[in-house]
Amino acid sequence: MPPTISPHFAATWLDEHGDMLYRYALLQVRDPHQAEELVQETLLAALEGYARYDGKSALRSWLIAILKHKAMDHFRRSHREVAMTNDEHEVAPEQYDETEFDESFTAEGHWRQPVSHWGEPQKMLEASQFWQLLEQCLQHLPTKLRQIYLLREVEEESSEKICQEMAISATNLWTQLYRARMGLRRCFVNHWN
């Protein structure tokens, strides 16, 4: 049976889960003000919906799931705004310069510079610099590209669902994911020593 609402919930949740929710929100929207708004909306929705929380999933997972829905609403709103000012239906590559990663290859399609070996993966994953750089490189991706990429890799949404949410074709999805993955790797290679 779900516990009844107590006046201390909001304060406790904010104390215990505020950082987690804010980090997850920042990963999604990048802008600190929007992230703050998402955390607030999430905690409000959680307070209002607490009677429906069955306790089967961990409280953190439940809160994250609410925030994920709020973030999707946010994306939809921002895409509508973009759609009104932009006639293109396909995802625009924004300021992203396609030749940036094409520069990796010669006209014949060979690597311009040899791709080096990174060494022990486990060691890299244990280094805090690795995660800092990954975060910076993710933030460096253009907004829509990052959203599509995060939906695929972090949320592990199906291709069908992403195409539907972002109103793009399957071919366009493959292109966007290719750009995101190449862009992320390239940024990483350029800054990892």
Binding site: M20, Y24, L26, L27, V39, R60, L125, L134, Y149, V154
Partner: peptide
């Protein structure tokens, strides 16, 4: 690495992302 970010955030390990 990217696939583990969400779990890192839930576990409170993702210190590379600013806190509230």
């Amino acid at each position: 690495a990217v696939r583990s970010i969400k779990q890192r955030i839930i576990n409170g390990e993702a210190e590379e992302i600013p806190s509230l």
